[in-house]
Design a protein around this nucleic acid. Structure first.
Lengths: 159, 159
DNA sequence: TATATTAATGGAAATCATTATCAATAAGGA
DNA sequence: TCCTTATTGATAATGATTTCCATTAATATA
């Protein structure tokens, strides 16, 4: 039986790491695994706790550092939903089925992913990106669209 | 000569304050004045410093409290551009000429307002809002669209 | 496979934006 | 003008994120 932390089959991101000269370490592997297995919008602490279950030696500092690295590499997205902590999720390509945006309840903090109209959005976004990058000479790498309001439960409570 | 802090002519927002039972105080007046006079995306501390120049007795706590109040009243918007501090700007109606979105340079933090395609965006946003509020029973009050990337200067530097 | 190099780690302390506490102050109605 | 109580501001507390630095471990190389 292989050791507990055996590397296993090479993952899709190993090449990207090696190409940049980054080392493939246990903390990095597990952080990516946790992000990959979770459909949620995890905070750094959420991730720390989940990784800690698998690999108790993990340090919170390493989680922050790794998340920062992954954001810079474009492998994950960092969001701010207005509750004072950043949230992270794996970046699937903008054209892949996972592409989505967020509805954020300003009362209870619930976050709903939606994929409706993403095609039409993307079309407009592409057009806008093209024009804006020309007009402002701005190299656009990413975008966010977020809707704020009240979820069904919080909306009911107000009545 | 009237006192330094005489109220002067009633402002457009006085009614909204009175209607909610909120008092019209000197700090609130000056904070709104500062927001109105600035075209920038001010942080709480920026606002504190500007208000302090006019009214040195201001406290940072009051600035935060007032901004929170104004956000809840819908008079100002609160943004997060990813630099760890919130930014505020006066909310002109979504249909007024001031409506704009942001290009954010992830390298130097520069923020560029753009108003291009806002009409088309608004059309899509309205349609999306309509559908999403129906589908998820979500009461949408607001939205943000942000583009992240490199401004012309930072883009040049990388080469 | 053993070794050397140095990137990466993790615990503790530091930082920094924002919030809570609470006694003093002042807005606005009577 | 006076009274009620919303509002204020100084200080302390909080909580997320960063910095520091000695230790560890990934990878290139012998």
């Amino acid at each position: 039986m292989p050791g507990r932390w055996c590397r296993g089959p090479a993952k899709w991101w190993h090449g990207e790491f090696r190409g940049c000269g980054y080392r493939i370490t246990i903390p990095r592997q597990i952080i990516l695994q946790v992000l990959d297995e979770s459909k949620e919008h995890l905070s750094a602490e959420d991730i720390y706790l989940k990784v800690h279950n698998i690999y108790p030696a993990i340090g919170l500092t390493t989680v922050y550092r790794t998340l920062d690295l992954l954001v810079n590499m474009g492998l994950i997205f960092k969001f701010d939903f207005g509750d004072g902590r950043a949230r992270y999720e794996l970046a699937r390509g903008a054209n892949e089925p996972y592409h989505h945006h967020h509805l954020i309840c300003t009362n209870c903090g619930r976050i709903i992913d939606y994929t409706d109209f993403v095609d039409e959005e993307l079309e407009l976004i592409k057009k806008t990106e093209k024009e804006l990058s020309k007009k402002y000479n701005f190299e656009i790498k990413n975008h966010t669209i977020q809707f704020y309001g009240l979820c069904d439960e919080c909306s009911d409570k107000e009545k």
